[in-house]
Computed example of a mutant assay.
Amino acid sequence: MSQRHELARHRQKLAEAREVMNSMKSLAFMETRKLAQFLVSQREVVATLKEVAADFLRFHQPPEAYTATGPAVYLLIGSERGFCGAFNEALVDQLETERDAQEAELILCGHKLCALLEDDRRILHRVEGVSVVDEAGTLLVRVSTLLADLNLQRGPILLRVIYQDDEQQSVRVDQLLPPFLPAPAEGSDNNTLQSQVPPELHLEPREFFSELVEHYLFALLHEVIFVSLMSEYRRRTQHLDGAVRYLDERLEAMQRRDNQLRQEEITEEIEVLLLNAAGAEPPADT
């Protein structure tokens, strides 16, 4: 009986672990559904701001203050929690392939990523990550405040972000600052009749561009955080799904082992009964 009792205790622990992991998987799946809706509208905002910037830059040069010099600063969006495979390791691998990685400074988001690069001399700041979609705004405020302080201290910086993009099936590296791509050349096929008319501004061009950059950076950071969270949740769902299937297989195997042990116990009990019955039979008549 001791074997079966030990097996039962082990099965109970595995069953409890399985329920916890299954709940985590369900939560991650629900978060992806919420994020999918947010991402659509956020991408539309970013696309609109890019169109406005492209239209502005056809007729105005960006202020010199937005031309960054000096070492790059990399913002890495990692995970706050685990159970998402090599999510953070892939970010670090991508960082080391960057041409200016050795001289760069790092801003790390997420507890797991920070732990991975705990003693890295390049770390400038560590930022607490988020676990659910509803906390994304909190992370956005933390990062935005940090970047604003950095801009006040140093002036314009060269800022790139490294994050996971599940739709692209790869780690992405995007430049956040200086913002926007060069304006299309005159006569480009992308220019429409409407784009040949200078935009009507109610602010000075410098002031307009400054506010546009602020809105754009805020919106783009929002999109990047959403994309990274989506990748994290999808990886966590896949990782936990595999773990749950593995535990189900283990539980089934342990159930078969329990049945086997029970059959052996029943067989032993029957043998004992037969031996006792044989010993209790009266001696034969002579």
Rank of each mutant, 00 (worst) to 15 (best):
S2K: 12
R9Q: 11
H10N: 08
K13F: 08
A15N: 11
A15G: 05
V20N: 08
M21R: 15
S23W: 07
K25R: 15
A28F: 07
E31L: 08
R33D: 02
L35F: 09
R43I: 02
E44G: 09
A47R: 15
A47P: 05
T48K: 14
L49M: 07
K50R: 15
K50C: 09
A54I: 01
F59C: 10
E64P: 11
T67W: 02
G70E: 02
V73T: 14
V73S: 00
Y74H: 01
Y74I: 07
E80C: 13
R81V: 14
C84S: 14
G85H: 02
A86I: 07
L95P: 08
E96V: 10
T97A: 05
E98H: 02
E98S: 13
E103C: 09
L106E: 02
L113S: 08
L113N: 02
A115T: 09
L117W: 03
D120F: 01
R122E: 09
I123M: 04
V127P: 07
V127E: 00
E128W: 00
V130W: 03
S131N: 12
V132T: 12
D134F: 10
E135V: 10
L139I: 06
L140H: 10
R142A: 13
L147V: 14
L147N: 05
D149R: 14
P156C: 00
L159G: 01
R160F: 07
I162D: 07
E167G: 10
S170A: 15
F180G: 01
A183E: 08
G187D: 05
S195V: 08
Q196R: 15
P199H: 02
H202D: 14
E204I: 07
F208R: 04
F209S: 08
L217R: 11
L220F: 13
H222L: 07
H222K: 12
V224E: 01
V227F: 00
S231C: 08
S231F: 03
R234I: 05
R235C: 06
Q238E: 13
L240T: 00
G242N: 11
R245E: 01
Y246S: 15
L251H: 01
M254N: 13
D258Y: 07
L261A: 04
R262N: 10
E268G: 06
E269W: 06
I270Q: 06
V272E: 04
L273N: 06
N276Y: 02
G279V: 00
P282I: 02
P282M: 04
P283V: 12
T286I: 13
